[in-house]
C-alpha cells in the first residue's frame, strides 16, 4: 500500500500539471489564437526565396506578408519576374497592371588599371573601408575601387573583378540591386535587361580633369550625342547618358567615342567605325 501510494502521488501531480497546462494551452489557443491568412503561404510559395530585398521589404517572407495584407503592389519582385507576378495576381485576385521591372546591374566604370592613383592603399580589402580614406586610392572620384564589396554583396555570385574593375555577368544577375546599395562610389546602375549599349563611366568632372586622370573616362565631348540617330544620348554635367526608351542599340555611339568607353554587349550589333 505504501509503495502504491508513493507511486500514485507523483503520477497524479505530474499528470495533473500536464493536464492543467494542456488545458491552459487549449484555452489560450482559443482566446489568443490568430487566424493566419492562407494567402501569405501561397504567395510565399511563389516567391523565389532569394531574400535579396529588391522589392524593398527585406525578405521574401516580409514581402509576402505585405502582399497578403494588401500593403504592397504585386509586381515588385524583379527576381521572380512576370511569371511569379502572374501567379501572385491569381492568388490575390488583383489585376497585374504592369510587369515587374526586370533588368540587370552594370558597373559604370572601365577605369581600373587605366586610371591614375593618388596613393597606394594597404588595408582591409573592402571598398567601404578604402573609400573612407580620402575617398579611396583612385584619383578619379567616380572610379571603381575594385576591392570587391559588390562581389561579396551579390547573392548570386554574378560579379567578378576584371582589370581592377567590377564586372557583372548579365546572365547571372537577378536585378536585386544589393550591389547598387553597397557600392560606396554609387557607380552601379540598373539598366533594362535587353539594353546592349552602356556608357561605362560616371565621371562628372570636367573634360580636362577626367582626361588627366583616366584614359577611358568620359570627357563630355558630345560626339556620341551628335552621332546618335535617335537622339537617345544627352550630355549633362560632363557625362553622356543613354535614354534606354529611345536607344535602338545601333552601336553608332560606340564607334565614334574617342575614349572607347561605350561598350556594346550584344554580339549581333557591329560597331560602325
Amino acid at each position: 500500500m505504501e509503495i502504491l501510494y508513493g507511486m500514485i502521488t507523483p503520477l497524479a501531480i505530474l499528470g495533473g500539471l500536464g493536464l492543467f497546462f494542456g488545458a491552459l494551452l487549449a484555452i489560450a489557443g482559443r482566446c489568443f489564437g490568430i487566424v493566419t491568412d492562407l494567402t501569405f503561404d501561397k504567395v510565399r510559395a511563389e516567391l523565389p526565396g532569394a531574400n535579396c530585398g529588391a522589392c524593398g521589404w527585406g525578405t521574401c517572407d516580409k514581402y509576402a506578408e505585405a502582399v497578403a495584407n494588401g500593403a504592397a503592389d504585386i509586381n515588385l519582385c524583379s527576381v521572380g519576374g512576370e511569371e511569379a507576378a502572374k501567379k501572385i495576381a491569381e492568388i490575390t485576385g488583383k489585376d497585374l497592371t504592369a510587369p515587374p521591372i526586370t533588368g540587370r546591374a552594370v558597373v559604370c566604370c572601365s577605369g581600373g588599371i587605366h586610371s591614375e592613383r593618388k596613393f597606394h592603399y594597404i588595408g582591409i580589402e573592402d571598398c567601404l573601408a578604402a573609400a573612407s580614406i580620402a575617398g579611396g586610392p583612385l584619383s578619379c572620384e567616380f572610379g571603381c575601387l575594385g576591392l570587391g564589396s559588390c562581389v561579396r554583396a551579390c547573392p548570386k555570385g554574378a560579379i567578378s573583378i576584371k582589370n581592377g574593375v567590377a564586372v557583372v555577368d548579365p546572365d547571372k544577375c537577378i536585378c536585386c540591386g544589393l550591389c547598387v546599395d553597397t557600392c560606396p562610389k554609387h557607380i552601379i546602375k540598373l539598366i533594362p535587361k535587353d539594353a546592349t549599349t552602356l556608357i561605362s563611366c560616371m565621371s562628372q568632372s570636367t573634360g580636362g580633369v577626367t582626361r588627366n586622370l583616366c584614359s577611358t573616362g568620359c570627357i563630355g565631348c558630345k560626339i556620341c550625342a551628335k552621332a546618335c540617330p535617335s537622339g537617345a544620348i544627352t550630355v549633362e554635367n560632363n557625362l553622356a547618358r543613354i535614354d534606354y526608351t529611345l536607344c535602338t542599340s545601333c552601336g553608332k555611339c560606340a564607334g565614334v567615342c574617342p575614349r572607347h568607353l561605350i561598350i556594346v554587349t550584344d554580339a549581333n550589333v557591329s560597331v560602325a567605325e
Binding site: 491552459l24 494551452l25 489560450a28 489557443g29 482566446c31 489568443f32 489564437g33 490568430i34
Partner: peptide
C-alpha cells in the same frame, strides 16, 4: 507557448 500566443495577439 502561452506567452508566445499572448504576445502574438
Amino acid at each position: 507557448q502561452v506567452v508566445e500566443m499572448f504576445l502574438h495577439k
